[in-house]
Design a protein around this nucleic acid. Sequence first.
DNA 1: TGAACTATACAACAATTATTGAAATATAAA
DNA 2: TTTATATTTCAATAATTGTTGTATAGTTCA
Lengths: 121, 121
Amino acid sequence: MDKQLATTLFESLASGIRLDIFRLLVKHAPTGLVAGEISTALALPATNVSFHLRAMTYSGLINVTQEGRYQRYRANLTVMQSLIDYMTSECCTGRPEHCFDTEIAAVCCDDNKFLSSDLEA
Amino acid sequence: MDKQLATTLFESLASGIRLDIFRLLVKHAPTGLVAGEISTALALPATNVSFHLRAMTYSGLINVTQEGRYQRYRANLTVMQSLIDYMTSECCTGRPEHCFDTEIAAVCCDDNKFLSSDLEA
DNA sequence: TGAACTATACAACAATTATTGAAATATAAA
DNA sequence: TTTATATTTCAATAATTGTTGTATAGTTCA
């Protein structure tokens, strides 16, 4: 998980509509839903939902497979888990005891200096 | 953690600059950094950093305290942990076995139906 | 008090993202 | 093959977000 992917995924979760779509797909995992079902469930125009589905698919947060004339969308729970792992490691960097049980988080890191590597991507 | 707060926090993490700021503050927890140190570290104009710090402070992702003529910013690791918890519960809803060890996640939920509550905020 | 310093507010503008209806593409079914 | 269905693409526009320089407000210290 690099910074670029992380920001793209956060962007995918940073709108009420996209978060609704994702939660809906999680609830319907692993079957997923086709585009029209999502539009209907959220009472939104198909074009608008399609716009958001495209962004979420591009980021990898959801997957799509063609099923005849339908497009079936599924939550990518593996990517979500990777993002949670990324956030956890970012959160614990520096002072793990502020986030978690110390013995669990202690593996993360131990320095708190101001490094030029602060600036890396 | 409600949906509105979650989307605001994701928005706070959904830019490279804001993610840099957050990671920098996490690395310097619990001391934090003053605004000028952040601008210098990231080589960005003070006004631009101030713009992003304001958004992050508003969402609660970071905290600010006045220190003489300085404004000291700190990562709010408690909020970050709450967001991770929210993501974890959203991710596991439906089919916990897809995210985690089943025995850990099994508490989350057990239905996979299409409910009108899908539409709630 | 007055000069230097820190940071934000403001204003102007650039760039990106969101929304909608109409048209196009592709599949399925009659 | 014609018609209906599902979804996306496109174009137009609206709305929001991001960036920068300048001005302002507040703090420190001589």
